[in-house]
Design a protein around this nucleic acid. Structure first.
Length: 754
DNA sequence: ACCTCAAACATTTTT
DNA sequence: TGTTTGAGGT
């Protein structure tokens, strides 16, 4: 074990590291060595003879936890680092839930439904109930269920909350409560949990079983939490419970980098921390070691525009560096070409490697033009986010075979593969099976196994096909606990017919899919070889649902330009950073204009983007941009004006090429669409561009206590008014949504009663 | 039961 | 623009 690592710390960092007894909070500005403090703190604990297994360290992404584990391992060795309880909230809690499954009416091999599975289940429920899918939109229903769960409103409680039912009534979604209830029952029946369940069920487990709670309170004597500003309400409550005994809890975060409120993250948790642990100590890390002083100053000048923030002054001793370049370009394609050219130039002049560059954008859809421009210049790049490897169709298909073999109740897996590859079991048959399963409250698998007893009318041919399918899965089942993961995984890939189905598809996509399957099998092989005792397929599958693209490191060549959303860039750093698409309605996003709060979150997002850079920042915006096959005129983002002009150098960059006219094959349909119904987006856009005053209602009529209706949040009560004239703002409490600050000139509020 | 094509849909961010 | 879904034909 190395002893001298503490020398690498400044006095404040050292104090934070050595504070191990009692609660502490580290407010860490961007680039101030936050990860270093966390890492060394864990090392320090281990050196003070704390057992690794009694340290719980929670991170925001798997990647962050892996990185930290690696750094700790380098200092203390694998035997110590391996026994730490380190990971994301979801992965650590799923471990606990599997261990304690018997307390919850779940088996320890329960399935984790990802977002796709949840949506597919909701889609079936809506269909079974014969509801109008225009009113009951799958995405909306899933989001609403998720937000209910994150606010601790069970399906039962929903039925007691008049405001919620009222809100759904107004939106003509009277059956929401029923869908919510059925959804929960179906998950339970399938021995499956969705992402939110992993948190909720953990909380339930700890609330209902005193012994279990005590066990984990005793176990986790030391708790550390990274990115605390992005924890949500349930996560906060679970941690509060576990930490209640020893109160050795250390949270690390930066309120200026809170960018996940759409997922329920709550900055309030930072304030609550002070109230919950009055004996706490706060350490502020304000020296930035990452960026040039120009970048630090620019970042400070932006975040200054936010009203809500904890006071701190980030500063640096680093050199001034070069100014931030802001480039105005003609179109999105031109923007991409200029970014690619600039990367090329810098790479040649400064002998920089491609891996030193990152291109950051607000939405995933922006990557397409950039990819094209990079490809044209033969610049190697890797792209994060978008469709995850594990979400690809062929991967999910094969994984569904594994899932069903492990858990026959897994309805979504069964539906996915019962007729893939095609074996002549059609929709009609599946419908009959589903109806019977719902009626008798058993799984589809059980129905198939008891067709005779149930008395279903299915012809003998189909019956035969069903029997073959069942015995196929049963043969896999016999071996899955005995064989190692790779052996059985490969066997299933072959015998299910997936491998040959894809092998025979000689189209480009087919070849690609075949290769992806090979890659998955290779991954399983690595898993099998690296873990000698617990190397069964069920063990492998426990991790898979929580993995994302970022966890699948591409080992081939690492010298590539990185493309990602700003959200996924959190916690990373690059010498050269390009931030593209700085246009009103894109960044800040159109959706964020309804309230001051979401506008401030967009601004924090911009702050995060700039502070990723070590040496240089390039910002670009375009005068026009392709969106849904149409060209949209854009104006520069307000954030550009907010940067201190001393840090900036402005450029206009037009290449000679103008946009080629686009001739559409589907001219007819587009014509009609343009004339008849304008897209919602267009309408919104026009509204914001044209009017500065909300014309629908008289703003003076909105006062304290008045009831209003909002088309997204439902009904709510005005609890506070600020400002005057066109800057008048209202704080409104919406049932089931919470408090929102709305700028009245934008928010389309209707007055319901006085 | 399966295949094909045109219409409809979608764009905020993700464990 | 690119992807998904559903109707209608075989």
């Amino acid at each position: 074990m190395q002893e001298n690592y503490i020398q690498n710390l400044n006095p404040e960092q050292e104090k934070a590291v050595k504070h191990i007894d009692g609660p502490s909070m580290v407010i860490a500005g961007a680039g101030s060595g936050k990860t270093r403090v966390l890492t060394y703190k864990i090392v320090y604990l281990l050196q003070n003879n704390i057992k690794p297994s009694s340290i719980l360290a929670l991170t925001f992404t798997n990647k962050a936890s892996k990185e930290m584990q690696k750094r700790i391992e380098e200092i203390v060795g694998f035997n110590y680092s391996n026994n730490l309880w380190m990971g994301t909230f979801h992965s650590v809690f799923s471990r606990i839930l599997r261990f304690e499954a018997n307390h919850l009416n779940y088996s320890s091999n329960f399935t984790i439904y990802d977002t796709e599975d949840s949506k597919s289940l909701i889609r079936s429920i809506i269909k079974e109930l014969n509801l109008d899918k225009e009113i009951y939109k799958v995405n909306f229903i899933r989001n609403r269920i998720s937000s209910m769960k994150n606010n601790f409103i069970t399906a039962k409680e929903y039925n007691n909350k008049k405001e919620l039912i009222e809100a759904d009534k107004i939106a003509k979604r009277i059956e929401f409560g029923r869908i919510y209830n059925i959804y929960n029952n179906r998950c339970m029946k399938a021995d499956a949990m969705d992402f939110d369940d992993l948190l909720i069920k953990t909380y339930e487990l700890l609330s209902r079983n005193k012994d279990t709670l005590l066990k984990y309170q005793e176990k986790f004597k030391y708790i550390l939490i990274d990115e605390y500003q992005d924890t949500n309400n349930i996560q906060y409550l679970i941690i509060k419970k576990i930490a209640a005994l020893y109160k050795n809890i250390c949270v690390v975060g930066d309120d200026a980098q809170s960018i996940y409120s759409f997922r329920g993250a709550n900055i309030q948790n930072i304030l609550n921390f002070k109230l919950d642990y009055p004996e706490h100590k706060i350490y502020k890390l304000e020296q930035n070691y990452r960026s040039t002083s120009t970048i630090v100053e620019a970042a400070n000048s932006i975040i200054k525009h936010n009203k809500k923030q904890i006071k701190k002054k980030v500063w640096t001793n680093n050199i001034q560096g070069e100014k931030i370049i802001i480039a105005k370009t003609g179109s999105d394609n031109e923007e991409s070409r200029i970014v690619a050219k600039t990367i090329n130039d810098i790479q040649l002049q400064n002998e920089a490697r491609y891996e030193e560059f990152a291109i950051l954008y607000r939405t995933n859809a922006q990557s397409r033009a950039l990819e094209e421009a990079l490809r044209k210049r033969n610049i190697a790049y890797k792209i994060y986010g978008g469709l995850s490897f594990y979400q690809r169709k062929e991967i999910k298909d094969l994984l569904s075979y594994y899932r069903l073999t492990i858990n026959q109740k897994d309805e979504e897996a069964l539906k996915r593969i019962i007729n893939y590859p095609a074996r002549g079991i059609g929709l009609t048959t599946i419908q009959k099976l589903t109806i019977a399963a719902n009626k008798m409250n058993i799984s589809i698998w059980e129905v198939i196994n008891n067709i005779e007893e149930i008395g279903l009318t299915i012809n003998n041919g189909t019956k035969n096909k069903l029997e073959n399918f069942v015995s196929l899965i049963n043969t896999f089942k016999e071996e899955i606990e005995i064989e190692d993961a790779y052996t059985i995984a490969e066997k299933i890939a072959k015998k299910s017919g997936i491998l040959s189905e894809l092998y025979n598809d000689k189209t480009n996509e087919g070849i690609n899919r075949f290769e992806n399957i090979q890659e998955l099998l290779n991954g399983i092989k690595t898993f099998t070889d690296s873990s000698e005792q617990n190397n069964t397929l069920p063990e492998f599958m426990k991790e898979v649902a929580l993995l994302t693209n970022e966890d699948k490191e591409d080992q081939k060549t690492n010298n590539k330009v990185t493309l990602m959303t700003i959200h996924s860039a959190k916690g990373l750093e690059f010498p050269y950073v390009f931030i593209v698409g700085l246009e009103e309605n894109l960044f800040p996003s159109l959706m964020s204009k309804e309230s001051e709060e979401s506008m401030e979150e967009e601004r924090r997002l911009f702050y995060v983007a700039i502070t990723r850079a070590k040496k240089r920042v390039f910002i670009t915006f375009a005068a026009s941009r392709f969106k849904w096959g149409q060209i949209i005129d854009c104006s520069p983002s307000r954030f550009i004006r907010e940067i201190d002009s001393n840090c900036l150098e402005k450029k206009e960059m037009y290449s000679k090429e103008t946009r080629k006219p686009v001739y559409s094959v589907h001219l007819k349909t587009r014509d009609r669409r343009d004339k008849t119904k304008q897209s919602v987006y267009q309408k919104k856009l026009r509204k914001i561009n044209n009017n500065t005053i909300n014309s629908r209602i008289d703003l003076t009529k909105i006062t304290n206590g008045i009831k209003v209706k909002h088309n997204q949040f439902g009904t709510g009560t005005v609890i506070n008014i600020q400002g005057e004239g066109i800057n008048k703002k209202a704080t409104v409490f919406f049932a089931g949504v919470g408090q929102k600050n709305l700028l009245l000139r934008f928010a389309k509020l209707e007055i319901i009663e006085k």
